[in-house]
Computed example of a mutant assay.
Amino acid sequence: MSEGLRERKKRRTREALIAAALELFQRQGYDATTVAQIAAAADVSTRTFFLHFPAKEDVVLANAEARVALAVRIIESRRPEEALPDVLARAIELMIADVSGSDLATGLADVRVRLALTVPELRSWLMRRLLDAQERLVEALCRSYPEEHDVVAVAALVGAMMGAVTSAAAYALRRGDAPEQVEAAMRQAAAGLAPRR
């Protein structure tokens, strides 16, 4: 099914807002950048900004919500014979592919890591969002595998996999690795915790 004109326009506006925010964050700093400046740089109104993002910090995780929703859909549509660790590994793999095609390609991932290192309130907000994402995956896995009664074990597995992938990406980006190297580091981290066959 092809994307309609309205959806394309909406996507282009969102991409313009992300690009404008990234440029401003890097040029003048996160704290000094206002929503009005981001909107003006993208040649849209402040109202249009808020149609795409609830707040300035949401631009930093622009694609995260869709990525988590993708993982939840993968978990909820699991194959009957698929074991819980296998479906989680598959969901994480698709999330990595999505990061590679969006956040790594646009430079958003790199800016996000640098902002997390330099803006304490943003770092704590990013940590809360990561924990919220993990909780959503744990809940989806528990719904899809009602026979798995140990929610703590499920939470530990989700935390280990997401933590390993996130940490590998952050350190690879801090080291200055190219996008394909960052993707490889994430895949290696996920593979290290994936179920052995």
Score class of each variant (00 low, 15 high):
3 E>G: 13
5 L>G: 11
6 R>C: 05
6 R>M: 09
8 R>C: 11
9 K>Y: 03
9 K>N: 13
11 R>E: 15
12 R>H: 11
14 R>S: 12
16 A>Y: 06
17 L>E: 03
18 I>A: 08
24 L>A: 04
26 Q>S: 06
30 Y>R: 06
31 D>V: 12
31 D>R: 13
32 A>P: 00
32 A>I: 01
33 T>W: 01
37 Q>E: 15
39 A>P: 03
39 A>K: 06
39 A>S: 11
42 A>T: 10
42 A>E: 03
43 D>P: 01
43 D>K: 10
44 V>Y: 06
47 R>C: 00
48 T>Q: 15
49 F>C: 02
56 K>F: 06
58 D>P: 05
60 V>C: 10
60 V>R: 04
64 A>P: 00
64 A>H: 08
67 R>N: 08
68 V>C: 03
68 V>Q: 03
69 A>M: 08
70 L>T: 03
71 A>M: 12
74 I>E: 05
74 I>R: 03
75 I>L: 12
76 E>Y: 07
77 S>H: 15
77 S>M: 13
78 R>V: 04
79 R>F: 04
80 P>E: 13
81 E>P: 05
83 A>K: 14
83 A>D: 10
84 L>T: 06
84 L>C: 02
86 D>L: 05
90 R>N: 07
91 A>M: 05
92 I>W: 00
93 E>G: 05
97 A>E: 10
98 D>E: 11
100 S>R: 07
100 S>H: 06
104 L>C: 01
105 A>P: 01
106 T>R: 02
106 T>S: 12
107 G>A: 02
107 G>Y: 00
108 L>C: 07
109 A>I: 00
111 V>C: 08
112 R>I: 04
114 R>G: 09
115 L>R: 04
118 T>M: 04
121 E>D: 14
122 L>S: 07
124 S>N: 11
126 L>Y: 08
127 M>I: 13
131 L>Y: 05
132 D>E: 15
133 A>K: 00
135 E>D: 14
135 E>A: 13
139 E>S: 15
141 L>K: 14
145 Y>P: 12
146 P>L: 13
148 E>G: 04
148 E>N: 10
148 E>D: 10
149 H>R: 14
150 D>Y: 01
151 V>H: 10
158 V>I: 09
162 M>D: 01
163 G>I: 02
164 A>G: 15
165 V>S: 01
166 T>G: 09
168 A>Y: 02
169 A>E: 01
169 A>Q: 03
169 A>G: 04
170 A>Y: 01
173 L>M: 04
175 R>M: 01
175 R>W: 01
176 G>T: 02
177 D>R: 08
184 A>I: 00
188 Q>E: 14
189 A>K: 02
191 A>K: 01
192 G>Y: 05
195 P>F: 02
196 R>P: 00
